[in-house]
Computed example of a mutant assay.
Amino acid sequence: MPGPPRQVVIVGFPDAELLDVACVSDALDAANRIGARPPYTIRLATVDGHPFRCQSGLTLTPHLRLDQVRGELDTVIVAGGGGHTAAARDERLLEHLRRLSRTSRRTASVCTGSTLLAAAGLLSGRRATTHWAYASRFAEKYPAVTVDPVPLFIRHGDVYTSAGVTSGLDLTLAFVEEDHGPAMAREVARALVTYLQRPGNQAQVSMFLSGPPPEHGQVRDLAAYVSEHLADDLGTPVLARHAGISTRQLTRLFDAHLGTTPGKYVRTVRAEHAARLLSGTDLPLTAIARHCGFGSTETLRQAFLDHFDTPPSAYRRVHLRQAYS
Rank of each mutant, 00 (worst) to 15 (best):
S167A: 15
L169K: 02
L192N: 01
D221V: 01
V226T: 10
S227C: 12
S210A: 14
T172R: 10
T268L: 03
V266D: 03
V188W: 11
S210F: 02
A271D: 05
R270N: 05
E215R: 01
M207S: 00
G211W: 03
L250Y: 03
Q204L: 11
P199Q: 00
A191L: 12
P199C: 06
L239D: 10
E215M: 05
T172A: 13
P262A: 12
R220D: 06
D232W: 04
L192G: 13
L222Q: 05
V205G: 01
S167G: 08
V238Q: 00
Q204P: 11
T172Q: 06
H242Y: 06
T260Q: 12
P237H: 03
L169G: 10
L222R: 04
L222P: 13
S246T: 15
V205L: 06
H180R: 01
T236Q: 01
A224R: 00
R270E: 02
T268V: 07
L209E: 08
G200V: 00
A163I: 06
R190D: 15
Y160E: 14
D221Q: 07
Y265R: 04
Q218R: 15
Y265S: 07
H216A: 09
G235R: 04
T268S: 02
S246N: 02
A243V: 14
V188H: 09
L258C: 13
E215H: 08
R190C: 12
T236E: 00
